[in-house]
Structures are given as structure tokens and as C-alpha cells.
């Protein structure tokens, strides 16, 4: 129905957003790609030279790189398992008729709105601190030795913090999906004598499949970029025990001033994120038609 006039107006209205995002996408990424082939250190900018594939080789043969990849995967998978399983369980629970459902929802969703540095500091100082934290108090009551969480289990501790932040998100999305479940179908299954477990496996779970996929993919995008939680708690240590890829690249760029190396790491991060993104785009794209 669009006349030629409205069509050109529409083009004009779309243009600023498209051009901005185009620049935002191409310019920095192009620069990263360029820098990744340079010997470029901010401490010695005069010594900048063409490096070829050196930065990639250097990154690839550095044991810290493999630690970082492993930690990234453990962090992402650990948080995903906790949030998806926990999210399904909690969503099923608060979907039941309960008193004070509104308040329960508010309490459960709250951690998602806590900014990452605050979340990390709360857990580091209030909860997991070896002498003043709640866990230490609890250990004392139970007659156990308090645990120095960030020294002994650095990656696990970070997984706990991040899972706490994202559990509300998973719960909320899965609850939303659960609430659109057809009640009559459920009733019919119940009258036919299907057990609660088989109703869950054959009706509820397939219904939530799409929401679960979306939760997994969206969280993965954000979890690959976990940064502030590591900065505030362990600084990636001890050693590289809690360094993920994001933190490794940050360290190369900001602490070692190694522009070329950090850029090569950045390109690797892009490739990793793209693998995930392709799946997400497919899942979301279906909804457009």
C-alpha cells in the first residue's frame, strides 16, 4: 500500500539507525583486525611493525590461552546448568497457587537488577569472606573450618555469583512460557491418569523447549563477556585459575599494553561468539514470520 512518497520517507527514517550501526560494526572491528597483524605495544609505539600471524601464533601457543578457553567454557556451562535447571524448578514452584505470589516474584527477580560490581562485592564480602562472611559464620556454627572461597575455589565462586545474577532471568522467562501452557490439555492428561512426572516430560517440557533455548542462547552471549565479577573478586587468579577469554584480552590490552596481542585475542573472541550467535539468530528468526 505504500506510495512512493512514504517509501522514500521510510528509507529516510531507517537510515540513521542503520548507518550508525554499520559504522559501529565495521570501523572498530576493522581496526581490531588491522591491529591484530601489528607488533604494537603502547609502551613502545615507535617500534610498531608488521607482525603477520605472529600475534595469533603467540596467543595460540600461550598456555594462558588454553586456561582461558577452558575457564570460559566451564563458567558458561556451569552457570547455564544451574540457571536452567534451577529456573525450571523455581518457575514450576511459583506457578502453583501460592499466597503472596507477587512479592515472591519480586524477591526472586531482584538479583538481576544488581549491577555486576555490586553483586560481586556483596558475595565477596558479605557471604564468602573467610572471616566475616555468612558462610564462615555458618561453618563456625557447624564446627567446620571456614573456607577461603576465592583462594581455594576461584572459578566455582565466580560461577556461584554469576548464576545468582542470572537465575532470576531464566526463572522469569521460563515462568512466562509456563503461564501460556494450555490448562485444558493439562486437565485432560490429568483425567486420563497421566502422572505428574509424565505430564511434565510430555507436555510441560516440550512447551518450554523454545523458552529454554532462548534462555541458553541469550545467557551464553552475556556469559562469554563476564568481566566485572572477575575484576572485583579474583582478578583472574590465583595464576590463571579464574581468567576467562574476556579477562585475558583485557589484561593484554590494559595491563600489558600489548595492542597487537589483545586484538588477535579479540578476533578469536568474535569467532567464538559468532558460533553461538548463528544458533541464536535461527531461534529468534523463526518468530519473525
Amino acid at each position: 500500500m505504500a506510495t512512493r512518497q512514504t517509501a522514500s520517507l521510510a528509507r529516510l527514517m531507517r537510515a540513521p539507525a542503520i548507518i550508525l550501526l554499520l559504522i559501529w560494526m565495521i570501523v572498530p572491528l576493522g581496526m581490531t583486525l588491522y591491529y591484530s597483524f601489528l607488533n604494537y605495544n603502547l609502551l613502545n609505539p615507535a617500534g610498531t611493525s608488521w607482525a603477520g600471524w605472529f600475534n595469533y601464533r603467540y596467543f595460540y601457543t600461550d598456555p594462558a590461552f588454553f586456561d582461558a578457553i577452558r575457564n570460559t567454557l566451564v563458567l558458561v556451562l556451569g552457570v547455564l546448568v544451574i540457571t536452567v535447571v534451577g529456573g525450571i524448578a523455581i518457575a514450576l514452584l511459583i506457578d502453583k497457587p501460592i499466597w503472596g505470589q507477587g512479592i515472591v516474584r519480586i524477591l526472586i527477580i531482584s538479583p538481576f537488577f544488581v549491577m555486576p560490581p555490586v553483586a560481586a562485592l556483596i558475595w565477596k564480602n558479605m557471604i564468602m569472606h573467610p572471616s566475616y562472611g555468612v558462610f564462615a559464620d555458618l561453618a563456625q556454627v557447624l564446627g567446620m573450618q571456614p573456607v577461603d572461597w576465592f583462594a581455594q575455589f576461584p572459578l566455582t565462586s565466580i560461577i556461584v555469583i554469576v548464576a545468582w545474577q542470572w537465575l532470576p532471568f531464566a526463572t522469569l522467562i521460563l515462568l512466562t512460557s509456563l503461564q501460556s501452557l494450555d490448562g485444558e490439555q493439562m486437565e485432560a492428561a490429568e483425567m486420563d491418569g497421566a502422572s505428574a512426572l509424565s505430564r511434565f516430560i510430555h507436555l510441560t517440557l516440550p512447551h518450554m523447549a523454545r523458552a529454554i533455548t532462548v534462555v541458553i542462547l541469550i545467557q551464553t552471549i552475556f556469559l562469554l563477556g563476564i568481566y566485572a565479577e572477575i575484576l572485583v573478586t579474583t582478578n583472574g587468579g590465583p595464576g590463571n585459575a579464574s581468567t576467562n577469554l574476556t579477562y585475558l584480552i583485557y589484561r593484554a590490552a590494559r595491563l600489558n599494553f600489548d595492542i597487537g596481542g589483545a586484538a588477535a585475542g579479540g578476533i578469536i573472541a568474535v569467532i567464538l561468539a559468532n558460533l553461538v550467535a548463528i544458533f541464536l539468530m535461527r531461534a529468534v528468526g523463526k518468530n519473525l514470520d
Binding site: L21, W24, M25, V27, P28, L29, M31, T32, Y35, I221, L224, G225, Y227, L245, T246, I249, Y250, A253, R254, I259, A262, A263, G265, G266, I267, A269, V270, L272, A273, N274, V276, A277, L280
Partner: peptide, 12 residues
């Protein structure tokens, strides 16, 4: 464009 990891463009 939202999928691009922030750290990838940290340097530039």
C-alpha cells in the same frame, strides 16, 4: 551487532 563481544573492540 549485539552479539559482537565488547572485548573484541576494546583495543580500537
Amino acid at each position: 551487532t549485539k552479539m559482537m563481544p565488547a572485548v573484541a573492540v576494546l583495543v580500537p
